[in-house]
């Protein structure tokens, strides 16, 4: 077993790397409490049931994008019969605040800020600064 050193060392290294996030959180005293999401005041319901929105809003957005841009079908009929334009800015951001809602959760779950905002405009930033 002259490879013992390498095998054990490699194993240790692997375990260390694999659990790195845990160590990092421990080291930085990361906050594991869910973020305080600012929910819209004027609405009770999202464009789809809460469970679906939580798990699949990215898929919904991609579907919207496909059908609005490529299939000339710009209107979304929600499960409760309401209709919405299939638009990030005009729909999602009419109820939600990008920074207090979308970004906060994405930061928390460690998702990259979606690149959509490179083009789609956050109206809250308006005046002078696009980002």
């Amino acid at each position: 077993m002259r490879d013992k050193f390498w095998i054990l060392g490699g194993l240790l290294l692997f375990v260390g790397v694999a659990t790195l996030p845990t160590w990092r959180d421990w080291e930085t005293h990361a906050n594991t409490r869910p973020p305080a999401l600012v929910l819209p005041a004027h609405a009770k319901q999202c464009v789809a049931p809460l469970d679906f929105m939580r798990g699949s809003h990215m898929q919904l957005l991609l579907d919207w994008r496909q059908s609005a841009v490529r299939e000339n079908n710009p209107t979304y009929v929600a499960y409760d019969g309401k209709t919405y334009p299939k638009s990030l800015t005009k729909t999602c951001l009419s109820c939600h605040d990008k920074r207090e809602f979308c970004d906060r959760c994405h930061d928390y779950v460690g998702a990259r800020t979606p690149y959509c905002w490179n083009c789609h405009v956050d109206p809250a930033l308006g005046k002078g600064a696009a980002r």
């Binding site: 000339n72 710009p74 800015t89 005009k90 490179n118 083009c119 405009v121 308006g126 696009a130």
Partner: peptide, 30 residues
């Protein structure tokens, strides 16, 4: 975006590295 003083939120801007042109205002025509 560096050359857009005040972007209009109703239509997305574009980003570095894509081509663009007139779309006959497809978003208005629809």
């Amino acid at each position: 975006r560096a050359y857009l003083a005040n972007p209009n939120p109703d239509f997305p801007t574009r980003t570095l590295g894509v081509v663009e042109k007139c779309t006959f205002c497809s978003e208005r025509v629809v």
